[in-house]
Simulated assay, not measured.
Amino acid sequence: MAAAPTKDALLSLYSTTLRTSRAFSSYNFREYFVRRTKAQFREIQEESDPAKLSAFYNERVKELQVLKRGALVNQLYGGWRLVVEKDIPKGKEEVMTRSDS
């Protein structure tokens, strides 16, 4: 019987996967992998079966390695920034004004 991963191991894997997901330079990939990571870990949150937890953990570790390679390649060949990615300094939000006023 497989030993279940500890809660700390799962939390560490979750935070590492989120950090790696946020490393994508492409907005669409980044947002997709962040949403997907949160959804996957939310589904297993209440699970108590050691076999299922162990299988989930092992699968996510393998997936994390693929995600790291994908993020690296995406950073190397990242494209233009999208309009939705516009950086606004904190406290200096743009105020929309009409050009005819």
Rank of each mutant, 00 (worst) to 15 (best):
R35S: 07
E47R: 14
Y27S: 13
N28C: 06
Q40C: 07
T37Y: 07
S26E: 06
T20K: 05
D49F: 01
F41H: 03
R42P: 00
Y27D: 11
R35D: 01
P50W: 06
F33Y: 03
S15Q: 14
V34N: 01
K38F: 06
S26P: 03
A39I: 09
F33W: 01
R36E: 10
T37F: 03
L18C: 14
R35P: 00
S48V: 15
P50K: 08
E31I: 08
R42C: 11
R22S: 11
S21R: 02
T17I: 02
R30E: 01
I44K: 05
T17Y: 02
R42S: 09
D49C: 13
S15K: 14
T16G: 11
R42N: 08
Q40G: 04
S48H: 14
Q40W: 03
F29E: 13
Q45I: 14
R19Q: 13
E43L: 15
Y27H: 15
P50T: 10
Q40D: 07
P50I: 10
L18H: 09
E31Q: 08
S25E: 05
Q45D: 14
I44S: 06
R30Q: 04
E31V: 05
F24A: 00
A39S: 03
V34L: 06
T16R: 14
L18Y: 09
A23Q: 09
S15T: 10
R36T: 03
F41P: 01
F41E: 03
S15E: 13
Y32N: 00
S15F: 15
S21Q: 05
K38L: 13
S25N: 05
R19Y: 10
R19T: 09
S48Q: 15
F24L: 05
N28V: 14
T16C: 09
T20F: 04
R22L: 14
N28W: 12
R35M: 08
F29R: 13
E43S: 12
S25F: 04
R30F: 04
I44D: 04
F41L: 07
S25K: 03
F41I: 11
S21L: 04
A23M: 10
E47I: 14
E31M: 08
S15D: 14
A39G: 05
Y32G: 00
Y27K: 12
R19G: 06
Q45P: 12
S25I: 07
V34D: 02
